[in-house]
Amino acid sequence: MESGSGEGTGGFSAMDDYETLISTTDADLLKRSWRNEKAAPEILQFESSLVQRSREQIQLMEETVEEFMKNGEDPLTVSLYQMDIDRTLFLLRSYLRTRLQKIEKFMFHIQKTADLWTRLSRQEQKFAKRSIEDMKQHLEQSVLTKLPDRYKSHLKQSVISEEDDMVMEPKLDAFVICRTRKFLGSLPVDDSGEENPLDMYAGDIYALRYKSIKPLIETGQLDLV
């Protein structure tokens, strides 16, 4: 990846190379996915192989630490390894947790949008299904059964509504802070019709509407911070 070095302003190029170098480790990839997931208003594609690899690595490191302890290795070394495990574990847990919290919040929306539904892992789909059952039952018990017949749906306000207008959706036009990974050229960031293309250089930080940069995040050209 010889990105940025040519197009970017000279001062950044050394840093770019360094960044691309370290971003090849799984820990860094995990950190990126975690940050993106935290900052994005909607749920992103589940990084199944990355999660799988991270878990294997954690297990491997745990075994190493145990071996070190048995062999009476320097406690400082052990402690450093342990810290590394803890950090990776935190990233992993927080990543999964953030996703579950999004599922909890937007479960009905995710369920009816096939594109979003396929972004979930198998376990997350199971979780979402059960959550939806629980929530539906709860809403029905507390409110819906007590309402008149034509107003009983949990997705629609009444039978007259043509669309599901009772479903909470993520705000895709919310502003997010993002950093470009490489030179992206000018970008039409405003759909208001105004001519306002933005020159995006590597390492620049912008506050933009999530909707307008969504494809760039999915392809990894842009990171959320």
């Binding site: 935190f90 999964l96 376990q123």
Partner: peptide, 23 residues
């Protein structure tokens, strides 16, 4: 609802064999 939902959460965690409630 609380009972059902926390059971759902627990079952996800045991599927994954990872406790998400710590850290």
């Amino acid at each position: 609802y609380f009972k059902n939902h926390s059971a759902t959460l627990q079952s996800y965690m045991s599927d994954l064999d990872l406790d998400l409630a710590v850290d």
